[in-house]
């Protein structure tokens, strides 16, 4: 990364760190949500964008993280919050590895269907188990400090993006991932063990999503199956990545910012109505038609990205 990009990154983080100084409590909550969705979109992008495998099961990993934190912080367990995050991460990554080992041998839409089925199965399981509180959900000991959660979400998001940049953009692992996305038989002919790499990517992606799930549970102080495992959580991640730029480092952050701010504005102006969904639909159509490479391609110096975006998007659609 050039000095200019480093400088730009430092300035962006500094501005984000100073943001709470100029925001009221409600706006700060929205900003915290932006950080969370940016992190989740980043997680989904590892599998969907870099590996080219469309997962519709990521809400399950977010939910695993949320339930891990909520359960371990229940009276009697009394785990400190920060100790619960690695547990959620490891459990989600482990589950992803177990699920991914057979399903990531599947091609095209079969993988998408398998992950969707897995997420639905887990949702139903959490709904009927006593230990998770069933549909009644679980309360988490409250810690009412919006600044704390904003900075925690921001730190987690920055770490997630740096991890993706280091691990996926310039490392061997990233080359393996992008190679198998573009041509799996050719990647194997170069000695790349594609199934293993895909499972590693899936586990990494799941682990990151779980960390945000854990922070979310502590932030909102109450979770139930639909609020942390509902299918629309994955849908949001997918749309955010498409909007921002599939298979790019910073695209998911741009997509998450725009979409979550739109979401909150619609809710704020019109109340809890279903009108957000048609708006979401219009955004998806507009992206496919006019901005197939995502918002990130509008940034200067990314001409190559502009040219490859359409292929990535059509490649993804073909796989479905």
């Amino acid at each position: 990364m050039g000095l200019t990009r480093w400088l730009a990154g430092v300035i962006v983080v500094a501005v984000l760190a100073a943001l709470p100084l100029g925001l009221d409590a409600y706006s700060l909550r929205i900003a915290t949500g932006v950080c969370m969705w940016a992190g989740l979109a980043c997680a989904w992008n590892i599998v969907g964008g870099y590996a080219g495998y469309i997962s519709f099961g990521h809400s399950a990993f977010f939910g695993i993280g949320a339930y891990a934190t909520a359960l371990l912080m229940q009276r009697g367990m009394d785990w400190p919050f920060f100790a619960t995050l690695p547990v959620g991460l490891v459990v989600a990554a482990g589950v992803a590895a177990v699920i991914g080992a057979p399903t990531m041998r599947l091609r095209g839409s079969y993988f998408a269907i398998a992950t969707w089925a897995f997420a639905e199965m887990l949702l139903q399981l959490v709904n009927v188990l006593d230990v998770t509180g069933g549909p009644g959900g679980l309360s988490v000991p409250p810690y009412l400090n919006e600044h704390f959660f904003y900075y925690l979400m921001l730190a987690a998001a920055v770490i997630a993006y740096l991890a993706v940049w280091v691990l996926v953009e310039r490392s061997r692992f990233g080359f393996r991932l992008r190679a198998l996305r573009d041509h799996e038989p050719a990647a194997e002919a170069l000695g790349i063990r594609t199934t293993l790499v895909k499972v590693q990517a899936f586990a990494l992606s799941a682990g990151i999503a779980a960390v945000f799930g854990g922070i979310y549970a502590y932030w909102v102080t109450f979770i139930d199956p639909m609020s942390v495992m509902g299918g629309e959580i994955t849908d949001q991640m997918v749309v955010m990545v498409l909007l921002g730029g599939l298979g790019t480092v910073w695209g998911p952050a741009l997509g998450a910012s725009l979409l979550w701010l739109t979401n909150r504005m619609v809710w704020s102006a019109l109340g809890d109505t279903a009108i957000y969904l048609p708006i979401l639909g219009v955004i998806i159509v507009a992206v496919v038609l006019f901005l197939p490479n995502g918002l990130v391609s509008l940034l200067p110096g990314l001409g190559q990205l502009r040219r490859r975006g359409h292929r990535l998007l059509t490649g993804m659609v073909r796989k479905l």
Partner: peptide, 8 residues
């Protein structure tokens, strides 16, 4: 030819 089309 089976190149990785989205890579340089």
């Amino acid at each position: 030819p089976s190149l990785f089309g989205n890579m340089s």
